[in-house]
Design a protein around this nucleic acid. Structure first.
Ligand SMILES: [Mn+2]
Ligand SMILES: [Mn+2]
Ligand SMILES: [Mn+2]
Ligand SMILES: [Mn+2]
Lengths: 222, 222
DNA sequence: TAAAGTTTTTAGGTTTGCCTAAATTATTCA
DNA sequence: TGAATAATTTAGGCAAACCTAAAAACTTTA
């Protein structure tokens, strides 16, 4: 199977399907892809057929889609490119950690293997990107450290923010407002049963964050 | 006039039209654009109409096209991006000078002004790219040093290769075969009246190069 | 200066990637 | 379990950026 050049669209679909599939293990619904990519479900169906014909996903009508082995391989390549560019933008070009995702979203589609390998070498083979996400190596192997979320800590326990899952702009804005970034120390003050929101202490200020928010912030326990 | 985002195609057309126009001074024929971009003349006409409607070129039916002030401004921006990326690829990622053009052709279309300005700063505001071409600054100003060509030297005069105009792969291959690169010292042995080809000495070996080849190699007299 | 040749445009298609509206299938829940 | 609701697909369209073939306009040349 010679490496057929994929379009930017196809690459974005594959990456999203992979991300939704939890490392290729889960079936992915048409609607979930639609929501993530902001593309109407009807169009997603079109593309699923196309990717299906290329054996990058398996698509069962009205059921859902699974990403294939070769689909995963390609998705990991794109993720590798994205995260390496993020490291470059952050470490070398001195962009803030919340400004890099959008630009990397474009750079990731420049597909020269040599380019990425030289970039990797130049950056000294980084293992994680500025959001704490692991970077796949040339072979697609990835350090799969499943960090715990804020909500996994108990009251009075402390942690260091080590990974931000959601990279949408609104989420970044929220984190900024909360004074949360990679490296920030937090302490659990209270866990609210009712809706599983959590009261946490950041720089001596206490705030309550929803379950959804806390799930998107991974930490290292200290 | 707010900066409207142009497509990759539109950007490539503008850059080519600008390059053919000799800094916006000459009218450009539909056929010449067609040849450079490898796109059929009929399609070129389509795009010329489109760019015309956006006031980036003036298109006179059956006559030719002229690039507008704002067209030039955009073209210079794209050229700036292209050449800065070439510097990055060559100086930082250690690509050979004949491997960078193609990759820069992709990178130049990632349009974030901040990205380019930060890259410029990171590279310490380089004035020329690895082929000896001047790099426009943020404002589109460009050091316009019109170097002399090999054919401008007289017999027995010497020069240092300082700029390669043609960046096609075949031309690079030819230069490699001739052992010519930026910095190579050459000496004129003879100038052939018949077809204006030139006999030159490179590393003690003498070769005859055609007028077309010598025109594409700019030098600094020594 | 008119015929021949060249350049450019027009007309009519195609592919990609998207959309809306309507039809179909699956799921929920009363 | 059957009716309402939700998810998904099909059908039909559209814009961008190409193409080929044919027509029209310019240029050369005899
Ligand atoms: Mn990112
Ligand atoms: Mn992307
Ligand atoms: Mn170049
Ligand atoms: Mn280009």
């Amino acid at each position: 199977m010679p490496n057929i050049k994929l379009s930017k669209s196809e690459e974005n679909y594959l990456k999203s399907i992979f991300n939704l599939s939890e490392f290729g293990n889960k079936q992915v619904s048409t609607n979930s892809i639609s929501k993530i990519l902001n593309i109407e479900p009807a169009s997603v169906t079109d593309m699923l057929k196309k990717l299906s014909k290329k054996n990058l996903v398996y698509h069962e009508k009205y059921k859902g889609s699974t990403i294939s082995k070769s689909g995963i391989k390609i998705a990991l390549q794109i993720i590798r490119r994205h995260r390496l560019w993020e490291v470059f933008l952050h470490d070398k070009l001195k962009f803030k950690w919340d400004e890099i995702h959008e630009i990397a979203e474009e750079l990731e589609h420049v597909s020269s293997e040599e380019l990425i390998d030289n970039l990797d070498k130049y950056l000294k083979y980084p293992k994680i990107d500025p959001h704490g996400d692991p970077i796949p190596n040339k072979l697609g192997e990835i350090d799969f450290v499943d960090k715990i979320s804020i909500s996994d800590l108990n009251i009075n326990e402390k942690g260091i923010v080590s990974r931000i899952i959601n990279e949408d702009e609104e989420f970044f804005n929220l984190l900024k407002k909360l004074n949360i970034e990679i490296g920030t120390e937090i302490k659990i003050v209270d866990k609210i049963e009712y809706d599983q929101s959590v009261e946490i202490l950041i720089n001596k200020k206490s705030v309550i964050i929803s379950k959804d928010i806390s799930n998107n912030i991974k930490i290292t326990k200290i």
